[in-house]
Design a protein around this nucleic acid. Structure first.
Lengths: 199, 199
DNA sequence: GTCTATATCTTGATAGAC
DNA sequence: GTCTATCAAGATATAGAC
């Protein structure tokens, strides 16, 4: 892959995190084993504990924050695609429907399953998921403020839109159908439009 | 507890299902053990396999369908509380915020965590969760139709409202705050209002 | 740092006494 | 039908050779 000098440690670590992202999203936190992650990462089992001495919790926390940051960029990119934030919001949902099919209804949100699993059972991970959601809401709210929605209302609107997206993913995955996400697209537009009209 | 004649099998079985409902909602499917369920139900371990020869999957399926039916009645009750379905919808969300606090942010939706866990990993359970969501949407859509929203749009609206509720629960549990559900209350009203206005 | 072998615990499930 | 003991397989985590 490269000249052989710079390989090593860094790349192995990265493969482990990437494998964690994929497996946690598909099978959740308790449903994914450390051996399974090592195998998917093509890394020796011991390497996981070399890079993550804190074990499964430490690995999961990094997975949550890493994939959260990736999604943050995605939110930013989608919202700057159109001037009109009603259109941008609706388009983001229809694009998500496409992603859902591409992934064969594996979770398009990398932290949703884990977030529900740990909410009442693992305090440090609960906090990590909370901060990730918070970062998404803050970023989306900034787009809505720029689009003309007053600040406090923009935050409420962003919260509702993120919630709607997560819930639509849940129904869509259960039904193996994009219909809920497409219905949510229109609903999201209605939410933002109402906020623009001053509630 | 009673005269000693009518105790036995039926009640033990019921305690097992009830314990399953509570534990699956809190810790999810893979995060809950059969021994844990037996202990919580104050039932001997072997009784679980006596009543549920299909093991964990069979028990989980019954838990999903049972709690789904309970929630179906709840949806029906909430929507008949007010004539105006915009108000009824918004009130249902604010009531949910109260439930969330009462449960100390344990999942108010008994099947959400399980639904995400099994969506890509367990086909019979995925189908069970799908049918439960479907029943909720159908019931809620009927209320919206009665409230004056034309049938096909009523179904889309109901789907979006249920999705919004599930997503709001997710954010609220992660943040340990009712704010997302309260924000969603206003958003849900906006969705229904838009549908009433003919989209 | 890489990798293997293993310790320890818990899981879902079963057998069989009562 | 109730209950206990136990199985085999899985989990997380560690020890130690290389």
């Amino acid at each position: 892959m490269n000249d052989g000098r710079t390989t090593s440690t860094h790349e192995t670590r990265q493969r482990i995190v990437r494998a964690g992202i994929e497996l946690f999203r598909r099978s959740g936190y308790t449903g994914t084993g450390m051996k399974q992650i090592a195998e998917a990462a093509e890394a020796p089992f011991g390497s996981i504990y070399h890079f993550f001495p804190g074990g499964k919790v430490q690995l999961a926390e990094e997975v949550i924050r890493t994939s959260g940051a990736v999604y943050l960029d995605l939110v930013a990119a989608l919202m700057t695609a159109h001037e009109d934030c009603v259109v941008a919001t609706a388009d983001a949902f229809t694009a998500a429907a496409g992603t859902l099919v591409e992934l064969d209804f594996a979770d398009p949100c990398p932290i949703a399953t884990v977030a529900l699993e740990v909410a009442s059972t693992n305090e440090p991970l609960r906090q990590a998921t909370s901060e990730v959601f918070e970062s998404w809401v803050t970023r989306l709210a900034a787009s809505y403020t720029a689009g003309g929605i007053p600040a406090p209302l923009a935050r409420e609107t962003a919260t509702s839109v993120i919630a709607l997206l997560e819930g639509a993913f849940m129904l869509a995955r259960a039904a193996r159908s994009t219909a809920p996400v497409l219905a949510a697209s229109k609903a999201a537009a209605a939410i933002v439009r109402a906020a623009l009209a001053g509630e």
